[in-house]
Design a binder for these strands. Structure first.
Length: 427
RNA sequence: GGAGAGGUCGCAUAGUUGGUCUAGUGCGCUCGCCUGGAAAGCGGGUAGGGUGUUACAGCCCUCGAGGGUUCGAAUCCCUCUCUCUCCGCCA
């Protein structure tokens, strides 16, 4: 959520941002918000004046009653009408304020000046890489589906039977390899990168979705359990960031760094037909997520650190990748700046997104009211929140199986995973 | 799912015949005095949001959340939520 003060003081900056994001259609919302804001202030002033009057006169009535002399009847009649006016004003105010918040919630985050200009994914800019690791693939490569099937690691057909398309089943060494990846990543982040491990709930309430920005904008992408008012998390970012919703964080505890495994659930509505094969697009996948809460002036430093932590996993696994900076037209509405890490798939002959690393600045903190006091006694300020996948296993599994395959149809296990799998080759 | 008890300013508590509670007290924290220094003692301060102001002040709102009754609610009524105890069911 944007600061209403930013709109008041610098509406042109907000409109310019909307253009950079290719969201010029939303520019009208800015003036609409400013109009509501002005009306609201006037009404608050009137209501407050009346409340002050009522408080004062109620005290006089109390004095008269206590003294037991004189009649308060006339005052009571007057205050009755004052109270009626207040009730009316408060009702209008509640409506105005909720309108205002709904509008404000739909506006995207500011963009960092370093975010490249551009309209779509075509315009994203290479930030680092590509990084190659030696893999001898001097034979016709199989794709991850063929390998998963021939080696009995993955079963998409039975997943479709028990749940639906896009719900993969891991079996035998496939399941073990998946679990090894998750454990390796969590261990690395907690032991080497300073994160505290969190195992969060996989279902959250609507307030939590609102806090991180998935609601209301991405409501149609989230699985919903209406009976209980719960939503399946699309990423661990949601429960983990919301751990501190509504809290005043101890300044000396900052920065806070959490690493969390979770299954992630996404409806992927509207994307049927694109990249549907196997792991390329699924409704449920596993991911280890890094989440940070920092002081505002430290957040861009933290962004680079998180990116480095995700890259460290790929380097350890020796999986080829590159890092791109998302342009204004492609970056998500919640992020002020975002890097994507893409892993190379030799069978698909293209890069696949395996991680997003984002700085949300105070956008989520403002929505979820997460603050700290800079020097212990001054006014509270919003923290900056960040997160990065470190990483999602689905695309990682594609790249891993394909790169580590051998000419005779087996798959070697990356060296760093062998202590976790207990075997060094599959097949 | 059923029954009961309870959620008060960091912590602990007072408050329950509605008006002196715009919330008392203790602890903690903090500033000052005292002291060679410290403890003790004494005195002051000790939330957030809105509005407003150059900045103060002032005013409004918040006693789990939201409604209601009333001139006026921490105090009465309703709904929800969380915690604890017991019963039932169950991975």
């Amino acid at each position: 959520m944007l600061d209403i003060n930013l709109l008041r003081q610098n509406p042109d900056e907000v409109i310019a941002m909307l253009h950079r994001r290719s969201m010029a259609d939303d520019a009208g919302k800015v003036q609409e918000l400013l109009d509501i804001d002005r009306t609201r202030k006037e009404m608050v002033q009137r209501a407050d004046d009346l409340k002050a009057l009522r408080n004062r006169v109620s005290k006089e009535i109390a004095d008269i009653k206590r003294a037991g002399q004189g009649s308060a009847e006339e005052l009571i009649v007057q205050m009755k009408s004052v109270s009626d006016q207040i009730t009316g004003l408060d009702a209008s105010l509640t409506k105005l304020e909720s309108d205002m918040e709904e509008l404000l919630l739909t506006l995207p985050n500011k963009l960092h000046p370093s975010v490249p200009e551009g309209r779509s994914a075509e315009d994203n800019v290479l930030y680092r890489g590509p990084f190659e690791f030696a893999h001898q693939l001097d034979f016709p490569v199989k794709n991850h589906l063929e390998l998963g099937k021939s080696l009995g690691l993955l079963d998409f057909e039975r997943g479709a039977k028990i749940s639906g398309a896009g719900f993969p089943v891991y079996i035998g060494k496939g399941a073990r390899l998946e679990r090894a990846l998750i454990n390796f990543m969590l261990d690395t982040h907690t032991a080497n990168h300073g994160y505290t491990e969190v195992f969060p709930p996989f279902m959250v309430n609507q307030e939590s979705l609102r806090g991180t920005g998935q609601w209301p904008k991405f409501a149609d992408q989230v699985y919903h359990m209406p009976e209980d008012g719960l939503y399946a998390i699309p990423t661990a970012e949601v429960p983990v960031t919301n751990l501190h919703r509504g809290e005043m964080l101890d300044t000396d505890k900052l920065p806070i760094a959490y690493a969390a495994y979770s299954a992630c659930f996404r409806r992927e509505a509207g994307s049927y037909g694109k990249d549907t094969r196997g792991f390329l697009r699924v409704h449920q996948f596993n991911k280890v997520e890094m989440v940070r809460f920092t002081r505002p002036e430290k957040s861009y430093e933290a962004l680079e650190e998180i990116l480095g932590h995700a890259e460290a996993i790929l380097c350890a696994l020796k999986i080829p990748y590159r890092v791109i900076t998302l342009c204004g037209g492609d970056i998500s509405a919640n992020a002020a700046k975002c890097y994507d890490i893409e892993v190379w798939s030799p069978a698909e002959d293209k890069y696949l997104e395996a991680s997003s690393v984002s700085n949300f600045e105070d956008y989520q903190a403002r929505r979820s009211n997460i603050r700290f006091k800079p020097d212990g006694k001054s006014k509270p300020e919003f923290v900056h929140t960040l997160n990065g996948s470190g990483l999602a296993t689905s695309r990682l599994m594609v790249s891993l199986l394909e790169h580590y395959q051998t000419a005779d149809g087996k798959v070697k296990v990356p060296e760093v995973l062998q202590p976790y799998t207990g075997f060094d080759v599959i097949g």
